[in-house]
């Protein structure tokens, strides 16, 4: 599939330094963009330099019935985990799985049975645990990546969605859309620590690099809640506007900037985390309804998966402007960056 051709500044070649922020990433690696296409039941593999679609990985032969949504990338960047489910959020089916894709071959390595309509997935920093938000059963489940065995399953609010594992691997945070809560799980003790009230319809959650803070987007509230992880409290709420409908969010490698996809305004909000303020709103040339958002390993690029444009917007961190648009599949939901060995 050809890239959408638009005038753009020359993209910088990403050298070794750009990958240094990715723990355990192969030194000789180059990165690829992986986009979960909700309505095509596929994953687009895109070259970040040319925007060319290098491969399209079929997740199911039943597009429109089976959908890939949230994704996570392994610490070494070489495995992409995809939350796959059907379109019937109240039903558990064999399609409810976490699919692991090998970035070297673009083949499915393994399917982890998850149950409960998994919507988003996270991986522990050591790569040994998968955590999936089970929308249908209002639970979060931990899965051993080596054996596929269930580590634990914990109750959340109704319509579980976002999930994140802390950098030290101890805490798992899970959002629930109808209870407006974040559930904090102790992954070592395997117990629920607390439930925190955040903004209306929380979608995604991400930890700061040092694990001290976590940030939660609230789609209907139009806010980002800031959680003090040690204190287990919401310590700040950043308003993006009622119409912003923020969904995925991610930090740059330093943790100084938080990028938030604004699905309602087709914008990306840039938050200075030290000031807890929106410092820039990127609107010009953005794709429609950005839903997924990822940051390149070195922090130079921000990628958004645009559900109404079936595209990926490429944003430069220096200019905070849209540099390019790449074509993706139908209903681009999430975007992640994986590593492939240099050939």
């Amino acid at each position: 599939m050809p890239a959408l051709r638009m005038p753009r500044p020359r993209m910088l070649a990403l050298g070794l330094a750009a990958l240094a922020g990715m723990a355990g990433a192969a030194e000789a690696g180059a990165h690829r963009i992986y986009v979960a296409n909700e309505y095509d039941a596929s994953i687009s593999v895109i070259d970040p330099e040319s925007g060319e679609t290098l491969d399209t990985i079929g997740i199911s032969g039943r597009p429109g019935e089976v959908r890939p949504r949230g994704m996570a990338v392994s610490p070494d960047g070489r495995t992409i985990y995809v939350a796959v489910s059907d379109f019937l959020p109240g039903r558990q089916s064999p399609e409810d799985a976490i699919v692991a894709i090998d970035t070297a071959t673009n083949r499915v390595l393994r399917r982890y049975r998850a149950g409960g309509n998994p919507e988003r997935v996270a991986i522990s920093p050591d790569g040994t645990q998968l955590w999936a938000a089970l929308e249908a059963t209002a639970q979060v489940v931990g899965i051993d990546t080596a054996t596929g065995a269930e580590i634990g399953k914990f109750q959340t609010g109704v319509e579980t969605e976002g999930v994140a594992v802390s950098p030290d691997g101890r805490h798992v945070l899970v959002t629930a859309e109808t209870s407006h809560t974040v559930t904090m799980v102790d992954a070592r003790a395997r117990k629920v620590l607390t439930h925190l009230l955040v903004g209306n319809r929380p979608r995604d959650v991400v930890f700061s690099p040092d694990g001290a803070r976590a940030y939660v987007s609230a789609e209907i509230g139009g806010t980002v809640s800031v959680i003090d992880v040690a204190a287990r409290k919401v310590v700040d709420t950043i308003s993006l506007g009622l119409d912003s409908r923020p969904v995925e969010l991610n930090l740059d490698p330093s943790g100084g900037r938080l990028y938030v996809a604004g699905g309602g305004t087709s914008a990306v909000y840039v938050i200075d985390t030290a000031r807890a303020e929106v410092v820039e709103v990127i609107r010009e040339r953005m794709g429609r309804r950005p839903w997924g958002l990822s940051v390149s390993p070195g922090g130079e690029r921000i990628y958004t998966a645009n559900g109404l444009s079936d595209s990926v917007s490429v944003i430069g961190a220096d200019c905070l402007c849209v540099l390019d648009q790449f074509a993706a599949g139908r209903g681009a939901h999430s975007v992640e960056v994986g590593v492939v060995d240099a050939r």
Binding site: G157, V158, T183, H195
Partner: peptide, 10 residues
Amino acid sequence: EDAALNAGLL
């Protein structure tokens, strides 16, 4: 039923 769960968390 939903409120029993959601509000129950809090």
